[in-house]
């Protein structure tokens, strides 16, 4: 099932449901439970075989350990690649985007961190971000940038949390930067140093 999020401020990303669209090629990136969004899309496609013959699927296991690589591999796409982490597949993704032509469809499903970073790479390659189809599945852990030191902490589960770079205690805002592909973390005890409320697990 596609994740449903509570209403939030206007900069918070809104995700859709992947739908096969006409295109000269299909780049499909997913992590964790995002694999299910891909299989659902393929199942609903009018000509799945033709689509798969022009598809390149990149899959990364999810932050909570979900690994459906074999299910996706079994789809029989023209190219399939399982990467142990998003960082590890980044050079491959960048090469594919550099060689791509207009008409290629980009689909990304899974956690917000991976969705945001694929969108970021597509933008850097010159494609309008709106052209990337997205669907959220699985873990709601967040990728958060510390507004103070600029370091990014991956897979944040609690609010507040300590910045993995500078150690400041940060509260997690819904304010989201597409360029950085991260939510904003702001020091929670700036006005009253040391008074940090107990962390609550908001993202699982």
């Amino acid at each position: 099932m596609t994740t449903s999020f509570p209403p939030a401020m206007r900069s918070r990303p809104v995700y859709g449901v992947l739908t096969a669209r006409p295109g000269t090629g299909h780049l499909i990136v997913a992590d964790g439970e995002g694999a299910d969004a891909v299989t659902d899309m393929i199942a609903a496609a009018t000509d799945a075989a033709a689509m798969l013959a022009r598809s390149h699927i990149i899959y990364v296991p999810g932050p909570t350990g979900t690994d459906r690589a074999e299910t996706l591999r079994a789809l029989g796409a023209a190219q399939f690649h399982r990467s142990p982490s998003f960082a590890a597949c980044l050079p491959r993704l960048q090469k594919v985007l550099a060689d791509a032509q207009m008409g290629m469809q980009i689909y990304v499903a899974g956690t917000e961190g991976v969705i945001g970073q694929v969108q970021q790479q597509a933008m850097l390659a010159g494609l309008p971000w709106q052209a990337v189809q997205t669907e959220h599945r699985g873990s709601t852990v967040r990728r958060v940038q510390c507004v103070h030191c600029k370091g990014i902490t991956e897979a944040v589960r609690t609010d507040p949390f300590p910045c993995s770079h500078c150690g400041l205690n940060l509260f997690v805002r819904d304010h989201y930067s597409r360029r950085i592909a991260a939510f904003q973390g702001v020091n929670i005890d700036a006005e009253d140093p040391g008074q940090v409320p107990p962390p609550v697990e908001r993202f699982a």
């Binding site: 103070h148 020091n187 140093p193």
Partner: peptide
């Protein structure tokens, strides 16, 4: 916001 820990107090 970058310098909030410096001016917040």
């Amino acid at each position: 916001p970058e310098n909030y820990p410096k001016w917040g107090p």
